[in-house]
Amino acid sequence: MYCYPRLRDLREDHDLTQEAVGRLLGTTQQQYYKYEKGIQEIPAHHLITLADHYHVSVDYLLGRDTK
């Protein structure tokens, strides 16, 4: 099981649905759900896309940094 503690918080803070984030990543809502729940590891290129979109670092997304 993988841990991505901030994916859901950032998505909700930006009033986005899992479907919308899935579209941003070029994947499905079901696949994004698996990333958010830690069922499946999220690919690095998706982490970079999300970090850019939310204006945070990849380390922040992974819970390794507070900024």
Rank of each mutant, 00 (worst) to 15 (best):
L10M: 15
Q18G: 12
Y54K: 01
R23E: 12
R64T: 02
R23N: 05
L25P: 04
G22D: 01
L24I: 15
H45C: 06
C3F: 14
G38D: 09
R8M: 12
A44I: 07
L24R: 14
R23T: 07
T27E: 00
S57V: 04
H45F: 13
V58D: 07
T66N: 15
K37A: 15
Q31E: 11
D9V: 13
Y54V: 00
T28L: 07
D13Q: 15
H55I: 03
H46F: 09
I48A: 09
K34C: 08
R11I: 10
Y33N: 14
T28H: 09
K34I: 01
L62F: 04
T49V: 12
T27A: 00
Y54M: 00
Y54L: 00
T27D: 00
L7K: 04
A44Y: 14
V21Y: 04
K67R: 13
D9E: 15
K67H: 15
H55V: 05
I39G: 02
G22Y: 05
I48S: 06
P43V: 04
I48G: 02
E36T: 06
Q29G: 01
E12T: 15
L47C: 08
A51K: 07
L62C: 04
H46N: 09
L24A: 07
A51F: 05
G38R: 12
G26L: 07
L16A: 03
A20S: 14
R8Q: 14
D65S: 15
L10H: 07
R23H: 10
K37L: 13
D9P: 06
Q18Y: 08
Y33V: 08
T66D: 14
D65F: 05
S57Y: 05
K37D: 10
V21K: 04
H53I: 02
L47W: 06
I39M: 11
E36H: 06
H45R: 09
L50M: 11
E19A: 14
T49H: 00
E36D: 06
D59F: 02
E41F: 05
